[in-house]
Nucleic acid binder design. Structure first.
Lengths: 245, 245
DNA sequence: TACTTGTCTTCCATTCACCGGAAGGAGCGG
DNA sequence: CCGCTCCTTCCGGTGAATGGAAGACAAGTA
């Protein structure tokens, strides 16, 4: 119950999220469970320092100083740096939305993303987390995940669209094919009108450290070419990672 | 002098910077001017919440939770979104490092960046700030900045390389040419071996809202082509911004 | 082994900064 | 004008933050 000032201030920051990018003072107080007067004082300090900024409307948003700080976080920074040029190549070759993702516990965490002009409906953003079973990169990461993670993921096969795979047996079969074929696909399982292909990114020879995927409106056309392009890029990333130790 | 707990905790976070991505507890205490015991306790709270993470070596780094939060900051998010595909096009056309920057007071703030395989020595990163007078995008932003900003910038023409323009008269002449010609160039003024070209990005017809630039090893070759490609991209971004209101 | 020098961690009595109810102000819609 | 919601300010009691001191640990030196 003991609530230190620090944790209270942090809880105020925690009230923000992808769905709540801007909040009024009273919303902040409500969402963090603090008395209005207390929230007011703490928000004032956060604002003074630059952790929060205030819109013309009076609502608060995450400030630029936190943006700066966040960019310093070593969240897969080696991976992102190594991958960057290959993502562009891949975009150039496919003109599709490109995704680089890692597994964070039982979710997909998108660490980089590259959107094209003609965008199919894509939900992901850099930093967003999605279920492992409903995305291409997620299936790849799940296929090579340890047993306990797979068990946990199978216990929460939520339906997102009518096409989401929610039958454990069918998903297990798909994962088996991912391991033998070396790539995963989805068809409108996360978002209607969007299909995806993804391949694993390996550091050295064994471990899968990330997944590389693209989102396209239709897969029937030239899946083979897309898979080939993905493989070239994934291998390039892997080599870069290996050479950088 | 009165140092509230909140501001102290924030000061601990502020001890991190591009040059100091990982810090030991004692470094944190020193850099923030806090007694070791106090720093220890506060860092513990920040760590528990996920604002800081701890490396195997025992050093602290910015944690993933702050990374998440930072991504929520509305730092030119409209601009970044509108520009993204055009940056890729520009990279495809030039294979050079591409920069999108805005002016933050008297500095250049890089809001997006796209690096190629063969990278010339480039100092910038997303989120980094550099002086206005020593970079291509900086000169563009300075050329269209209000009078007081220009005055302030002229009062601090620091030398970065032997080629940095530090004479006010010469810089003023260059800015005049930026306005008449519509583009700015630099030659090893920020970093040896790196030249740059940049053009303004206009929303609607008048105001310059950002600058778009590329960095190449040599400019003598095909400056005209590069400027043309930059202009196409900048116009595209401007149109997208205008159509999105 | 004993000593040095640097880390990090824990403890606890003092005190001072945080707390939050209450009251006042500002804006809005009926 | 009243009622509603939001934001801001005030202030006395009190419990959470403070930081010196002491101990634990590791690495380097003689």
């Amino acid at each position: 119950m003991a609530a230190s000032v620090t944790s209270r201030a942090l809880d105020l920051l925690g009230a923000f999220g992808p769905e709540h990018r801007s909040l009024t003072l009273s919303e902040l107080a409500r969402r963090s469970g603090l008395p209005l007067a207390t929230a007011h004082r703490l928000v004032g300090e956060l604002h003074k320092w630059g952790a929060l900024a205030r819109l013309a409307s009076g609502e608060y948003v995450i400030g630029r100083r936190l943006w700066d700080l966040g960019l310093l976080a070593p969240v897969q920074s080696g991976l992102r740096q190594a991958a960057s040029p290959f993502l562009h190549d891949l975009y150039g070759a496919t003109l599709a939305t490109v995704h680089l993702a890692v597994r964070d516990r039982v979710e997909v965490l998108y660490v980089d993303r590259l959107a094209g002009h003609v965008s199919v409906p894509v939900v992901s953003r850099i930093g967003s987390r999605l279920p492992l079973h409903a995305t291409g990169v997620g299936k790849v990461l799940l296929a090579y995940a340890p047993e306990d993670v797979r068990a946990e993921a199978f216990s929460r096969l939520t339906r997102v669209t009518p096409y989401t795979v929610t039958q454990p047996a069918r998903l297990a079969e798909q994962l088996r094919r991912v391991r033998t074929e070396g790539y995963a696909t989805t068809g409108e399982e996360m978002s209607l009108g969007a299909c995806s292909v993804a391949v694993p990114v390996r550091a050295g020879h064994d471990s899968v450290v990330a997944a590389l995927g693209i989102v396209v409106p239709d897969l029937r056309r030239d899946k083979a070419r897309l898979v080939a392009a993905l493989r070239v890029a994934a291998q390039g990333i892997g080599r870069t990672l290996a050479s950088a130790e």
